[in-house]
Amino acid sequence: MLGFVALFVVASAAFSLSAVSGGGAGLIVMPLLGLLLPADHVPAALSIGTAVSSASRMALFFKVIRWQVVFLYVPMALPAAWAGILLLKQFQPAYLDLLLGLFLLSNLPLMLRPRKKSGISSKTSNSVWLPLIGALAGFISGFTGAVGLIFNGFYYRLGLRKEEIVATRAANDILLHIFKVVLYALYGLIDQATIKTGVVVAIAALASSWGMRLYLHHIPDYLFRQIGRGAAVVAGVAMVALAGRQILVQDRIVLYFNHTEKAVELAANWRQHKLSVEVENLTEVELRHSVLCRGVTCIENPKIQDMDTILHISLDRGIYIAKRIPSLGSGLITRT
Score class of each variant (00 low, 15 high):
Gly211Trp: 10
Leu160Met: 15
Lys116Pro: 08
Phe154Leu: 04
Ala204Gln: 06
Val249Cys: 02
Ile299Cys: 00
Ala243Phe: 02
Pro302Cys: 10
Ala59Asp: 01
Val237Ser: 06
Ala137Pro: 01
Ser290Tyr: 15
Leu255Asn: 12
Asp191Trp: 06
Leu315Gly: 12
Ala137Glu: 08
Ile48Leu: 06
Gly134Ser: 07
Gly26Gln: 12
Val64Leu: 04
Leu160Pro: 14
Val182Met: 04
Asn107Glu: 08
Ile247Val: 14
Ser327Cys: 11
Asn152Lys: 15
Leu17Glu: 09
Ile203Ser: 07
Leu35Ala: 08
Leu27Ile: 13
Val74Lys: 08
Lys274Ser: 14
Gly148Trp: 10
Ala171Leu: 10
Ala94Ile: 01
Thr194Leu: 05
Gly138Met: 04
Ala167Glu: 08
Trp210Gly: 01
Pro75Arg: 04
Pro131Ala: 02
Arg57Gly: 00
Ile319Phe: 08
Ser330Asn: 03
Gly211Pro: 09
Leu7Ser: 13
Arg225Thr: 01
Leu216Asp: 03
Phe15Lys: 10
Glu265Gln: 11
Leu32Met: 06
Val64Gln: 05
Asn258Pro: 02
Ala185Leu: 10
Val70Asn: 08
Gly119Phe: 09
Ile227Arg: 04
Lys117Gln: 12
Val147Pro: 00
Thr168Trp: 07
Leu158Asn: 12
Trp82Cys: 00
Val74Arg: 11
Ile120Asn: 03
Leu160Ala: 12
Leu266Trp: 07
Gly188Lys: 07
Val237Trp: 05
Leu160Ile: 14
Pro75Gly: 02
Ala263Arg: 15
Arg245Thr: 04
Ile333Gly: 00
Leu160Lys: 15
Ile165Asp: 01
Ser209Pro: 07
Gly138Lys: 07
Thr334His: 12
Arg229Glu: 00
Pro31Ser: 08
Lys162Trp: 01
Leu189Arg: 12
Tyr256Leu: 04
Tyr73Lys: 11
Lys162Tyr: 01
Leu136Ser: 11
Cys293Trp: 12
Ser56Lys: 02
Ser53Gly: 14
Ile253Asn: 02
Ser106Val: 13
Gly23Gln: 13
Gly23Glu: 14
